[in-house]
Nucleic acid binder design. Structure first.
Lengths: 333, 333
DNA sequence: GTGAAAGCGCTAACAC
DNA sequence: GTGTTAGCGCTTTCAC
């Protein structure tokens, strides 16, 4: 049998209400009484039961985190930001992988709600009607991290992916690369697919020689898909002199795909990645990439969530963090 | 107000015990009654409260996971194995980063126990007396993953780090490399420091020309420390013709440190890493490395934990998974 | 400043 | 098969 608040009360010769006050730091306790209680707690090795507390107080100090894949270097970094801030505000995290699978996501949201989490941090691909519906029915606040809600009606933390992609490609064009190719994520993916692609396309149209769909290869975010895409793009009659990759991992694949076929980076082909994961510095030449502040997105979104959970006023429901282009050696500008 | 089991009972015209039976899949319910209850649940949008259930049943179907750093590519992969198996057995995971800080670790264990987790999966550095003490006092099972307990009295899942290091270095020596250098983790770290170092040392003594401490650089697991260590080792009069790195990330640093100074891998210097993270294939030349089955270690340790939580019989408390050397292009054997 | 007592929403005997 | 009832360990009024 574990020792309960009642055991402590008896040992200290007070009521359980008083023990509860001491445990919760309520100031309305005489110092002498407090000491008696503290001694009893110490002596009995009492440890409060958070489940009972959760039932009585309707607060669990736990938040649910739904993430596509914790083994992805990108999301792992985000998760670290989330967890650090959660810890800072005394919350714990229930972490689940969704693989961006809609059924799983919906199921997980329900599981977290059953577990009475005080809030949910959601990372995923598309926010469908079903998602929106489920979130709206949720009794606790939900914040999106690195995830777009097209209707912009949910709190979220992102960078401007479209603009970031545009900026990167524009820089490539201005530096003299006539045809810029792209290795995109699946176009259904709002962030890694659509947004980045549309930024790329806009830059080609407005600053470059126009958009040519042959210059776009669609990969699956993996290193290998970058490897293949690069070689495929270089076989084009009008082979690109620069390639914009949707993620750093893909960009590394691109660089190596190029090098394996004897092309030089950046002399023959410039390469730009996206995210600025640690990978960007672990390749030769080092990778020029769009900086997406992953840790910060995690941290800011968790902070935002704590505000909602505390019912504080929130000025910016939709926060857009700044991005920038980190210039390294895979480009010649 | 959320709808409770009592509301469902009234709506369906049965007792709450019956509703509980239906919700928990107890077969002792007449199909007609079951249907009435299910309809009521559906109609009211009832969602069971896991906290109340946890309090009443003394089971939370939640396990605590203490991990040094989720943003590390190694631990992230482990975590994924853990979470997948947890999901399979209907457990959720509370994930916390410890940074291998002893105070944090001890504190986290307590927090998880307060939250009434059904078990704990621990990853860390050293298991001190205090750790052992705390674990022993724990009312729930604890399993170590990729973490050594020198007294071998706790359930754990690992590979044989000493032997794996020995094997890698022996192969290097047999392939003709006279002096093999090493970039180790801090020697206080039982796994990445001591075990791997001692395997290296033994191979030098038994198969090579003996051990020379000048050939060992101590880094901090980072890419940059590999970069520096490589350049430092190559300045030795007796520069190594092969370098064994304690982790893949360090090995990438070593390769690039070498290349940046004009050395060729593997012609001038062979390089072997450890872990077989995805990084090993994202470098040129691709990295020969010791395969540590990270996902499997996570998965197996979680499976082991479920057995303890179910009070099943466990034959192997200390499991040692096989390792092997994955031969790629950073070596010439 | 402290205590008594009523829940929180559910499970688990036990009775019928 | 189904209902009754007593907790699980705590928070939270409300008295005193």
């Amino acid at each position: 049998m574990n020792t309960t608040i009642y055991d402590v009360a008896r040992e200290a010769g007070v009521s359980m209400a008083t023990v509860s006050r001491v445990v919760n730091g309520n100031p309305n306790v005489k110092p002498a009484t407090r000491k008696k209680v503290l001694d009893a707690i110490e002596g009995l090795g009492y440890r409060p039961n958070a489940v009972a507390r959760g039932l009585a107080s309707k607060k669990t100090t736990t938040v649910g985190v739904i993430i596509p894949d914790i083994s992805s270097i990108f999301f792992a970094e985000l998760a670290r930001g989330i967890e650090d801030i959660a810890t800072m505000y005394k919350y714990n995290i229930i972490l689940c992988n969704s693989d961006q699978n809609k059924e799983k996501e919906l199921h997980l949201i329900n599981t977290m709600l059953e577990k009475q989490v005080d809030g949910i941090l959601f990372m995923g691909g598309e926010i469908t009607e079903d998602h929106a519906e489920t979130f709206k029915r949720s009794s606790v606040p939900v914040v999106l991290a690195a995830t777009l809600d097209e209707n912009r009606e949910m709190p979220s933390v992102n960078i401007d992916y479209h603009q970031a992609a545009f900026d990167a490609v524009a820089e490539l064009i201005r530096s003299g690369s006539e045809n810029v190719g792209m290795v995109s994520g699946p176009l259904e993916d709002p962030v890694n697919g659509f947004q980045k692609f549309s930024g790329y396309k806009k830059a080609c149209e407005e600053i470059g020689n126009g958009f040519d769909e042959n210059l776009v290869a669609v990969g699956d975010y993996s290193y290998d898909s970058g490897l293949e895409a690069a070689q495929q793009l270089m076989e084009l009659d009008k082979a690109p002199s620069a390639i914009f990759a949707a993620t750093d991992e893909v960009a590394l694949g691109v660089i190596h795909g190029l090098q394996d076929k004897g092309w030089n980076v950046p002399e023959d082909v410039q390469v730009v990645g996206f995210d600025n994961t640690r990978l960007a510095q672990m390749v030769r030449p080092t990778l020029t990439t769009v900086v997406q502040p992953m840790y910060d997105i995690g941290a800011v979104s968790m902070r935002l969530l704590t505000k909602y959970m505390n019912k504080e006023d929130v000025e910016d429901e939709v926060v857009v963090l700044p991005h920038l282009l980190e210039n390294r050696n895979s480009t010649s500008f």
